[in-house]
């Protein structure tokens, strides 16, 4: 049985236990009770990488993206405070 979590991620019990998987390539991120974000490939980029009009946020926020480690599907994009990243916060 499968049910979606978001656009490119789903929960599947194909392997016998509920597992969070990539909907594009089937990569298994983790068990359903774990945080799939911790198993993604991630990048922190300057805010203007989201477009020139985002340069307003440069210096204050970073663009964080999470990808499937296998097929590089983009699963999450968000702004995070630069200061938190600089001081090791989450």
């Amino acid at each position: 049985m499968r049910h979606p979590l978001r656009e490119n991620i789903e929960i599947s019990d194909a392997s016998g236990t509920d597992t969070i998987c990539c909907r594009r390539c089937g990569f298994q991120y983790c068990r359903a009770d774990q945080d799939w974000r911790e198993f993604c490939k991630s990048r922190l980029l300057p805010s203007h990488n989201a477009g020139d009009l985002m340069s307003l946020l440069d210096g204050q926020y970073l663009l964080r993206q999470l990808y499937c480690p296998s097929c590089a599907a983009l699963v999450d994009t968000d702004f995070v405070e630069k200061q938190q990243q600089d001081t090791g916060g989450t």
């Binding site: 656009e7 985002m54 204050q60 699963v75 994009t77 968000d78």
Partner: peptide, 19 residues
């Protein structure tokens, strides 16, 4: 909120903030 002015969803990029 500049940060989540127009929030992207499931990988989608945020929209440019209002000003």
């Amino acid at each position: 909120g500049l940060r989540n002015s127009g929030q992207g969803l499931f990988g989608g990029y945020p929209g440019a903030p209002s000003l």
